[in-house]
Structure formats: structure tokens, C-alpha cells
């Protein structure tokens, strides 16, 4: 089950570039929240700050308070602890090329030393079912390499991999941008189903996608969050002129 995320005064830098400027935001639990904005506006950096992936880049740093439930993830826990509770799906599918489908899905557990085979089997099946991939791969789970699947299947496998660790939050960084329309709609259906179980934050450059899957939407521009509201409001009666310009296609 998901937890809410409370972001206060989040700032982030790449080298000397100030990519996120004083972000304040409340992301409700068990809902999907979409982040939209033109490329380079900081929305990807923002989700990477939510599981401390941002700091894996040696020149990057972040300050501020990010509370996941009651835990300040920058103060009370190590990055590894946080990432175990937060699943992440990246822009391009990134299966482990040396591992079978089964091992890919189980990797979050196996690489952390979990060895109970019965639970692993059950988790792999449950996660693949949740990612709507089970029927397509159940016959060669251990025979086929994760890299042998199609792009859309790979991405669903990556979602299954993120779900297998039973996370509280699921971060998705443009999960469908590298996929064809059919795969994209499968991923969207999936998000729509998963959001009852997990707090989902999805970055997208596709406004229709945001409108289809998310209850709340935030609009980012030049490292600042311009507006955050229910998706309905953002798309029908935005309060900020820049949001209106963006969603009506006047720029971006």
C-alpha cells in the first residue's frame, strides 16, 4: 500500500546548473500523479530526487525535505533503504541482459539476498500478472533472456520487476516514450489499475497520457513547479497563464 509524499523546499543541481528551484508539493497516497512540462524543465530530476537516484551522478546534489510518510528520506534513511521502498521505471526499458525473465523480475529480491524459492516463485507470478505480462511469458520464464522480449514487453517486465519488491511508491519516468502506441496503451491501462495499490508518480511529455491516467497533475517549467492541481482543473481551468499556454500548445 502506498504512502503520501510531502516535498518541501526541494532544490537540485547538476554541477552548477540549478535544475530544481524550491519545489513544494503534496503527493497523495494511492493515486496517480502526473508531472508534465517541456523537456529539460526538471520533471525527471524531480522524480529522481524522490528515490535519491539523482545523487548517483557524482556532480549532482539536492537539498530540502522529502517526506515519505513520516520519514525524511534525505535525513532518516540511506539511499538503499529508500530505493527498496520505491519502485522506479525508467524511460527506456533496461532489463538485465544476462538474466532470464524470471531472474529479471526477481532481481530486486535475489540481489538483496532473498532466497526463499516458494515466495520468489509466487512473487514473480504475481508481479508478472500485475504487469499484464504473465500470459505472454509464462512458458519460458527461465528459458528466455529478459533482453529477448519486445520493447513493450521489456517495459512491462521492468514494471513487474519494480512491483516485485512490493514498493509503496512507484516512480515512472516517461515509461512509454520509447514504445509504440499499442504498448503505450497497455502501459497506461496498467497504471490505471495499479494506482489503487501504489502511490504512482508518472513523468510524461504527453498531456493526453496525463489526463488519462492521473488524478493530479503538476506543471513544471524551467526548474520550477508552476501549478499543481487536480488533473481536471489543470486541463480545463488552469490558474496560471503559463500552464494555459503550455496545454493549449502555445509553446513546448
Amino acid at each position: 500500500m502506498g504512502v503520501g509524499i510531502n516535498v518541501e523546499h526541494l532544490n537540485a543541481w547538476y554541477g552548477t546548473t540549478h535544475t530544481l528551484q524550491d519545489i513544494n508539493l503534496n503527493i497523495p497516497a494511492n493515486h496517480a500523479t502526473a508531472l508534465i512540462g517541456p523537456s529539460g524543465c526538471g520533471k525527471s530530476t524531480f522524480v529522481r530526487c524522490l528515490n535519491r537516484m539523482h545523487e548517483t551522478n557524482p556532480i549532482a546534489r539536492a537539498t530540502g525535505v522529502v517526506k515519505m510518510g513520516e520519514v525524511d528520506i534525505y535525513k532518516d534513511a540511506s539511499p538503499v533503504d529508500i530505493r527498496r521502498r520505491v519502485g522506479m521505471v525508467f524511460q527506456r526499458p533496461n532489463p538485465f541482459p544476462t538474466m532470464s525473465i524470471y531472474d529479471n523480475v526477481a532481481s530486486g529480491l535475489k540481489l538483496n539476498g532473498f532466497r526463499n524459492k516458494a515466495i520468489l516463485d509466487e512473487t514473480v507470478e504475481r508481479s508478472l500478472k500485475a504487469a499484464a505480462l504473465w500470459e505472454e511469458v509464462k512458458d519460458d520464464l527461465k528459458k528466455k533472456s529478459g533482453a529477448s522480449l519486445s520493447g513493450g514487453q521489456q517495459q512491462r517486465m521492468c514494471i513487474a520487476r519494480a512491483l516485485a519488491v512490493d514498493p509503496e511508491v512507484l516512480l515512472m519516468d516517461e515509461p512509454a516514450s520509447a514504445l509504440d502506441p499499442v504498448s503505450t496503451s497497455k502501459i497506461e491501462d496498467l497504471i490505471f489499475q495499479l494506482k489503487s495499490q501504489y502511490t504512482i508518480v508518472i513523468v510524461t511529455h504527453n498531456m493526453q497520457q496525463a489526463a488519462r491516467v492521473a488524478e493530479n497533475t503538476g506543471f513544471f517549467l524551467n526548474g520550477k513547479m508552476v501549478e499543481f492541481n487536480s488533473t481536471d482543473k489543470i486541463f480545463t481551468t488552469p490558474s496560471d497563464k503559463r500552464t494555459e499556454d503550455y496545454i493549449t500548445g502555445r509553446f513546448g
Binding site: 500500500m1 497516497a29 494511492n30 500485475a130 509503496e168 490505471f192 495499479l194 489503487s196
Partner: peptide, 24 residues
């Protein structure tokens, strides 16, 4: 656990009837 689930609530939205919810 360091992360407590403050807002964890079952969601019984009528439209979302699926195997994910029923699986757990």
C-alpha cells in the same frame, strides 16, 4: 520500519475492479 504507512487506505473505487486488487 522507518517508513510508516500514514495514509495507507484501501481504495474501493468502483471502476477499479481488477486482479491486482484481488490478488492481495
Amino acid at each position: 520500519a522507518p517508513l510508516t504507512q500514514t495514509e495507507a487506505t484501501p481504495l474501493h473505487a468502483p471502476a477499479i475492479v481488477n486482479f491486482v486488487a484481488s490478488a492481495e
